[in-house]
Design a protein around this nucleic acid. Structure first.
Lengths: 218, 218
DNA sequence: CTGGCACGTCAACAGGTGTTGGCCTACATT
DNA sequence: AATGTAGGCCAACACCTGTTGACGTGCCAG
């Protein structure tokens, strides 16, 4: 759609630094950046607003103008700090799943733990729903979701799975079940999926995940 | 977003008939409409192009202009025949899952049959991927997907499930696993999910679906 | 043969989009 | 205190969107 700039950015903003993508979400002072800038609060506000809008509306319908309005600043600031809409999305879609260490958990309880963690994580952060919304529509979003899968779900399975060469497949199966439930419950709002309690959800899904994790290859 | 028309359509096109939504996809002469119109071919071309575009690009990025160009006609024809973009989408997102009759199948084989049918159906019709893409982004698309769930998956489960009051829940669980795999394999293109053969897919997923279908409530 | 009408094209509209460059202001450093 | 600069706003650009109405054209009924 948008043409690639042929040679070099014509006249970049005075302090556009994409090498230092902010990760802090709402907390203005998370992490210890080398030199705190005066605009960090604005940056964080933009990022928070972008997360909300992307989550609520998807990539295309989340307009820079609306994000800027939510953040209480001018649209041009978004461009100055994040280059363009894709850059903003890249910064806003940084996701950490924060999986706990499961190596000490009894092997047959790992499925349940995984499911519970996913549910709590999902319900505590609407960004995840948004990322799914974008991952389905947008190529960059899909790439981001594959990355999250490869970098955050895979290792957990690797640490538990008996046969290393099957770990990738098993991780994908787990992802399919967990993301599928997230899709039905949090995105599509299918009534029976929404009605399930946490405990029911865990009771139904845990054996599935457990089987994908440790059962012999069929 | 778009305001509802308050009283009546101001001056509708001369022959806008939403009560007779065409269902025929690519075949120009499928079904026996009461009076075949001269424009049926155009209608079908629009519908086919719309399906492709919606599937490939999602609701927002699939523009009426692009659809019309694909169909080889003027954008205004789309408006004339389908009212507006939402109407076109409603007509283009008519989906039939064509579930076979499973009442004669041995109960413990139904899971495998269901999974196989889903895979074949999905790979034979890219529209399904498109509908998922739209269902995730667009409210009307989500409603449509809930409808498909309620009208086409539910009955299959109802016919097999022992306890009627649990059928809705069980159907939702099955939907979560099947749609989740479709998401990972056909939309997100996760490599390990794409690499699975049909047989592997069925071997892994069938026991899950079977359990959701007939296993005792945990 | 002639009128009406379905079919179709063209050009335009009003609004929204990402993006840009100029200009002002207030802070921090010298 | 002077000054360079980062932070911020404003107005505009070029483009694309869904949608509309006027205007031809060829088919079919009378």
């Amino acid at each position: 759609m948008a043409e690639r700039r042929p040679s070099q950015p014509p006249s970049p903003a005075p302090d556009l630094d994409l090498d230092e993508l902010p990760v802090a979400a709402t907390a203005p002072d998370a992490g210890a950046h080398p030199r705190p800038r005066r605009s960090d609060a604005t940056r964080a506000a933009i990022l928070a607003a972008a997360r909300d809008r992307f989550a609520a509306d998807g990539y295309e319908r989340a307009t820079i103008r609306a994000i800027a309005r939510d953040a209480g600043i001018d649209p041009s600031m978004v461009m100055r700090y994040y280059g363009n809409k894709e850059g903003l999305f890249a910064a806003a879609s940084e996701i950490e799943l924060h999986f706990p260490d499961l190596t000490q958990v009894p092997p047959d309880e790992i499925g349940g733990r995984l499911v519970r963690h996913f549910i709590e994580r999902w319900e505590g952060d609407e960004t995840l729903t948004g990322m799914m919304r974008v991952g389905v529509t947008n190529a960059a979003g899909a790439e981001r979701m594959r990355g999250i899968f490869a970098e955050q779900i895979r290792p957990v399975v690797d640490a538990v799975c008996p046969a290393p060469e099957e770990a990738a497949t098993r991780a994908a199966l787990i992802a399919s079940q967990v993301l599928g439930m997230a899709l039905c419950r949090y995105v599509l709002h299918m009534p029976p999926a929404v009605a399930l309690t946490h405990d029911d959800l865990i009771a139904w899904l845990a054996p599935t995940v457990q089987r994908y994790l440790t059962a012999e290859r069929p």
